[in-house]
Simulated assay, not measured.
Amino acid sequence: MIGYRGVRSPTLTNRSVSPSTTDPASVVGDAVLAISTPRRRTLADVRNQVAIGLAVRIISKAESLDGVRVGVALTMPTNYDEDFLRAVTSEISRRLTLNSNEHLFAVATTVQSISSVPNTLIILGSSEDYVLRAKLLAGSKFIGRIITSASEEKQWVATISDIGASLYDEAALWDVVRKSAREPVDPLLPPPGSRSIDQILTEARSKLERITPMQAFDELRESKVNAPTFLVDIRPAAQRETQGGIYGSLIIERNVLEWRFDPRADSRLTIADRFDLRIIVFCQEGYTSSLAAYSLQQLGLLNATDMIGGYEAWKEARLPIDIDQAHPRSLVSLAGSVV
């Protein structure tokens, strides 16, 4: 016998009552009718059911990589809005989290030739690290196409133009999730033949006769040295603007240094017409400058070296500095042409 909560058995008396209000059969019949009559499905119900079905289908097509479930789906045209896509990704996350599966998925709406509405891309994962790696890789894959983006808890949501317009897009997203889900390489197990930056720096400095700021200052004023001597500032503009500089130094940023001083290069400085130049390179603290000076030596500029401690050490030695780097009084512009 099935009980119906909230339905009270009527009390039978000898007085006449209306069957519609006290007849047990009538009461139970109404309850059965109320329960058995299905609620009319709304559009929201349909969308939710479609989202669940789509999530199940996406999960079924996923692959495993280093113990992580990864998948990509270019799912539907843009007339399905972001809320629907969120419902799909939420169901994916719920099902995989329920089963304790590590996962990383990329799901996006696809392009419509008749629509100018941007597409939505959602990358979701079981960890923030997976999502962060995938976000950075996706930014590189779709450079110039991402319109807006926002990081949320364990997911990244972006609007992106024309995704799905070519076969490249799906392949690119698969590449993103696969690479982002890989087990991190143990930094203590580098590939054969590789060297740490400390090893590279030590090797470079072993080839140099590094000098102190005071020694550099004395060399610049020495009149008996046969080779022309130049102090070269390779720091980026932001550091010069905030920290100041050294009046009389040549400002040549690191990315063009070799091209400015190689006597064989078409873009060399006018003064770089010989290999015996004495070039004293400095950076902010004396690390990048060592690598730069060694690179110049490899070009054949064997007198190149760098300044121990860089610009910081120069200031501590109370040697002349130029604080107004908004209008630097250097001899060479950033482009490397003599002024």
Rank of each mutant, 00 (worst) to 15 (best):
P236V: 04
G244K: 01
L208A: 08
Y247H: 09
A34R: 08
G310R: 06
V117I: 13
Q239M: 12
L220G: 01
G309R: 05
K179D: 11
S249W: 01
R240T: 06
D262N: 05
T37R: 11
T120E: 05
D162M: 12
K135D: 07
A106L: 02
P328W: 02
S9T: 11
E241A: 14
S249R: 04
I59T: 10
E153T: 15
Q298R: 14
L277F: 03
L189M: 14
S290E: 14
G286S: 11
R39Q: 09
A227T: 13
I143W: 12
D81A: 11
V88P: 03
G336Q: 01
S9W: 09
L167V: 11
D276G: 07
W174C: 02
L188G: 07
F282R: 08
T305S: 00
L189R: 14
S116W: 07
I59Q: 10
L208P: 06
F142E: 03
V28Q: 06
Y80M: 12
G67E: 09
D186T: 04
S249A: 15
D186M: 10
G144I: 08
E170A: 05
E183V: 12
P236I: 00
L334P: 04
G71L: 02
D322W: 03
Q155I: 00
V70H: 05
N99C: 13
R86G: 08
T305V: 08
K141N: 11
L124T: 10
K61S: 15
V17S: 12
L96A: 13
S333N: 11
S196R: 15
R329W: 05
G193A: 09
I58T: 13
M76F: 07
E203T: 13
E82H: 08
M1R: 08
G139H: 08
A106D: 01
A138M: 02
L334T: 03
N101E: 15
Y130Q: 04
L269I: 02
R39K: 10
P10V: 11
L189T: 14
V88C: 10
D129T: 12
H327L: 13
I280F: 04
A181Y: 04
L250V: 04
A227I: 07
R47V: 01
R260Q: 09
V56Y: 05
R329T: 06
Q297K: 11
S249M: 06
T305F: 07
I246F: 10
D66F: 09
V88G: 05
L124R: 05
I35K: 05
S127F: 06
V338H: 13
I92W: 06
G29Q: 04
R260G: 01
L277W: 07
I160Q: 04
L85E: 01
R195A: 15
R133G: 05
G164I: 02
V157R: 01
D45L: 00
T89N: 10
K154Q: 13
L98I: 05
I123D: 00
N255F: 10
R40Y: 09
I123R: 02
R235H: 05
G71V: 03
S60Y: 12
M214R: 14
S223H: 13
P213C: 07
A292K: 03
R47E: 14
F261N: 02
D198E: 15
I160K: 03
D129E: 15
V68L: 07
D30Y: 04
A158P: 11
E253A: 00
L291F: 12
I200T: 15
S36K: 09
